[in-house]
Simulated scan of single mutants.
Amino acid sequence: MKPKLRQISPVLIELFWDEKPNDILLNHLLSWENAIFSQFGSEVIEVRKGFQTLSCVLKNDLKQSNLKAWQCFVETSIDLSPLPTKLWEIPVCYDPELGKDLISLSKSLSLDIQKLITLHTEQTYRIHFFGFLPGFMYLNGLDPALHFPRKSIPDRKIEPGSVAIGGSQTGIYPTESPGGWHVIGKTPITLFDQNLNPPVFAKPGEQIRFIPISREEFEQLSTDPKPIKSHD
């Protein structure tokens, strides 16, 4: 599963795959990212991950000789590192007062609320990358029965910790933001803390599972947060 190469601008070159996002493709993305830094570390400022892309921001304009080096690079074989086994448990309260779109989404999907919650919590999700907002996890693994288009008119304000569904994805808003996803619950944990290093507790390749909690547990964790649970 070798990538293709395209130059976007004089200082931006991209590796991309014509594959559907899954664990196998993610394994290749993370392994090729490591190979890029090993081979071109002195030339690359950063690598931005997408579901099917690695966009490399370069320090200087790409010359023809360097482009040939990149072309040879993508034709090589690299060693694949196994995906991380760490699994994070995210407590979520699926209360209509916290998940303002829970009732309307359940009606649109023709699912009762408990069935929607069950489908959302029985899946294990893989973190592919962070984007949109600092600490916003792009997750893969949402049950197809919960796929639903994003809102045509986004909300002006979504609260931090809001768990939402948009299209074929689910995610958590780490900070207050406008957004067009359907909010179905809320977590009391902090997803992004700029005072910590790193500011996000999880990494791409690791997994997420949503654990349903009561409103009472949510209020308790909001005032007395416990360390987030994880398993290897």
Rank of each mutant, 00 (worst) to 15 (best):
Q39R: 15
D23R: 15
S168M: 10
Q169E: 14
F16I: 07
I113W: 01
P204G: 07
K68Y: 10
V47S: 14
P144L: 07
L5S: 01
R126L: 02
H28E: 15
V163D: 02
H128T: 13
T170Y: 01
I211E: 09
V57F: 11
I13N: 06
I103N: 07
K4F: 06
E217R: 09
I8L: 09
Q71A: 11
L62G: 04
D232M: 00
N197S: 14
G166L: 08
C93T: 13
K86P: 04
S9T: 14
I158E: 02
P21D: 00
I90E: 05
P134W: 05
L29Q: 04
G99H: 12
C72V: 07
F37I: 13
G161S: 11
L102C: 04
F129H: 14
V183M: 07
I213D: 01
E176I: 14
R156D: 07
P160F: 00
P160H: 03
W88D: 01
T175W: 03
F129C: 10
P144T: 04
A202S: 12
C72F: 04
K186A: 15
E33P: 10
I213Q: 06
I208P: 00
I172R: 00
S9G: 09
N27R: 15
C72M: 07
P212T: 09
E159R: 00
K115A: 14
L54Y: 09
Q7S: 12
A164H: 03
L80K: 14
I184E: 05
I117F: 00
C93F: 08
D112L: 05
T121L: 01
D193G: 11
Q114W: 03
I36T: 12
H128V: 08
L87K: 02
A35F: 10
H147A: 08
P212V: 09
P212M: 04
F129K: 06
G141T: 03
F136L: 10
G131C: 12
I211C: 08
F210N: 00
W181D: 09
